[in-house]
Simulated assay, not measured.
Amino acid sequence: MELQVTTLDGKSAGKVELAEDVFGLEVRQDILHRMVRYQQLKAMAGTHDVKNRSEGARTGKKFVKQKGSGGARHGDRKAPQFRGGGRAFGPTPRSHAIDLPKKVRALALKHALSAKARGGEIVVVDSFAQKDAKTAALRTAFGKLELTNALFIDGAELDKNFALAARNIPHVDVLPVQGLNVVDILRREKLVLTKAALEAIEARFNKTEKVSA
């Protein structure tokens, strides 16, 4: 698959060929769903907590005789049925993370990239380099490229001025290529890659395939 390379000013900067084994797969929604669920569950804090009957601040003394009171038999006031008592079967801190094989995670990333490529939602830019961290200038450049909702992926290191200028623009995310992930790809309308990011992505999958072989 061949794409036109552009500059942030909207000028043509040549063409680039996308690897079919990374950007040309038949998209499988089930794999994307598994990966999105994996990422979202892993991101959950899991810090929800309530006090059970052993953690309450009330006395543990038996407040009524076992027999002869004419009422129910009770132990202490920390039992769940009493006001101020502990919660029965309440949530406790835990991890919500689930397991997903490394190969499936890598395949899901390929499918997310392929989904963007099939939808014509990938834009390749020669570089994000900026002389100054000017949000207004960058917003104008995005307007020329019709980028109102996009994920920008740079090489191993982000251009500092670009990252500073872009962080004040709504519906825009900027990540280095190491941070590329399925959820962020799918939540934005456009995926904008630099040539350095594109090379790094293809090299990453080539390396993975050689290791697994």
Rank of each mutant, 00 (worst) to 15 (best):
M1T: 11
M1N: 03
L3M: 08
Q4K: 10
Q4A: 15
T7V: 06
L8E: 02
D9C: 02
D9N: 13
D9P: 01
K11V: 12
K11M: 10
S12G: 06
E17G: 07
A19M: 10
A19C: 04
E20T: 12
D21L: 01
F23R: 00
V27W: 12
V27E: 06
D30A: 11
I31L: 13
R34I: 10
R37V: 15
R37W: 09
Y38N: 07
M44T: 03
H48W: 08
V50R: 06
S54G: 06
E55Y: 07
A57G: 07
A57V: 10
K65V: 10
G70L: 04
R73H: 03
H74K: 02
G75E: 14
G75D: 06
R77M: 14
F82N: 01
R83Y: 15
G84W: 10
T92R: 15
I98D: 02
L100M: 15
V104I: 13
A108R: 03
A112L: 05
L113R: 00
G119V: 14
G120R: 07
G120F: 15
E121V: 01
V123K: 04
S127R: 14
K134S: 14
L138W: 14
T140V: 11
E146D: 15
N149M: 14
I153A: 05
D154F: 04
D159M: 13
N161Y: 12
F162T: 05
A165L: 12
R167Q: 15
N168I: 07
P176L: 09
P176V: 09
V177G: 02
Q178S: 10
N181Y: 04
I185W: 00
R187S: 09
E189N: 06
L191P: 05
A200N: 06
F205R: 01
V211R: 01
